[in-house]
Amino acid sequence: MNRIQNLVQRIQNYLRQPRNAITISVVVILFVAGFLIKTPPPHISLVAEPLLEGGSSWLTNSMLTTILVDIVILILALWTRATIKMIPSGFSHVVEIMLEALYNLTQSVAGKRARDFFPWAATIFILVLVSNYSGLIPGVGSILVVQEAGGHAAVMESSAKPRILGGELVMANGAIISMSGVRSEAQQEEGHVASVPLFRAPSADLNMSLALGLSTMLMAQVWGVRQLGLKYFKKFFQFKRSGMGVIMGMAGLLELISEFTKIISFTFRLFGNIFAGEVLLLVMAFLFAFILPMPFYALELFVGFIQSLVFMMLAVVFFTVATLSHSGDHH
């Protein structure tokens, strides 16, 4: 009995501080609101969708985000370039530390070739990292663009007719509002109406991850040929007339296949992780709008970092392996 009273006393003391009281009440309000607000089912699509229906099919939401990601990277690079000084300080110092860490990481794998591989490794890391994190910005995946049958798209505004939208979160004059229950009527009225997320993380688009995987594996072949000449291809075609010859031939064949497998694993590892993370966040937000997605957000921040690091490290490892003399050493 005494213990309970003690606890109550302590809670009261805790709440007496205005800051604590505000924090607790906000959490409680959000928790209650989570039950009251009906979150619409999330818009989930495996593919990146074109923003302009009937227009050019290349302008997909992920392509738009890619351009934004490029701009962000460019601004960061310019900022670093402008503020870099002999005596390190501020933002440029942070970038320097990051790049030095990446360089050391590359060097630990590639050794002397780090200088050649570094631009690839760093670009992959930065591009993938910013792409991954772009998917975590609030609004990416939740701001929808409405496509009308007429062929032009418009961002939903409060003045626009509600018939266009289904039950999704919509940005209207700076405020995200929820419109549910209108979609079915709208779809009944007009068959062609659909809504598409305005932004989509580039790494959640197979085109981007496949582009990176293809470039990386293609470049691995280039490094191999540059280092070993035409001897590089020997590792794929090791046909000899002996007992071991058959096995070596098979091994070479496997080697050849593995080069393609690496592309696929690169592609789907990145795409799968990031796309799954976004779906996870959307589903969590759908299940319970507030508080519940927070741990998953932290998880996705971690996953985004790890995936970019993994992509980079694997690229460096494949480059390095390609430059090592393969056949001939065994015999």
């Binding site: 593919v47 890619t66 085109n207 496949l210 293809l214």
Partner: peptide
């Protein structure tokens, strides 16, 4: 899967 020659090339 949403893979498209133009998009792939543009990403590369």
């Amino acid at each position: 899967l949403g893979i498209n020659g133009t998009l792939l090339l543009s990403q590369i």
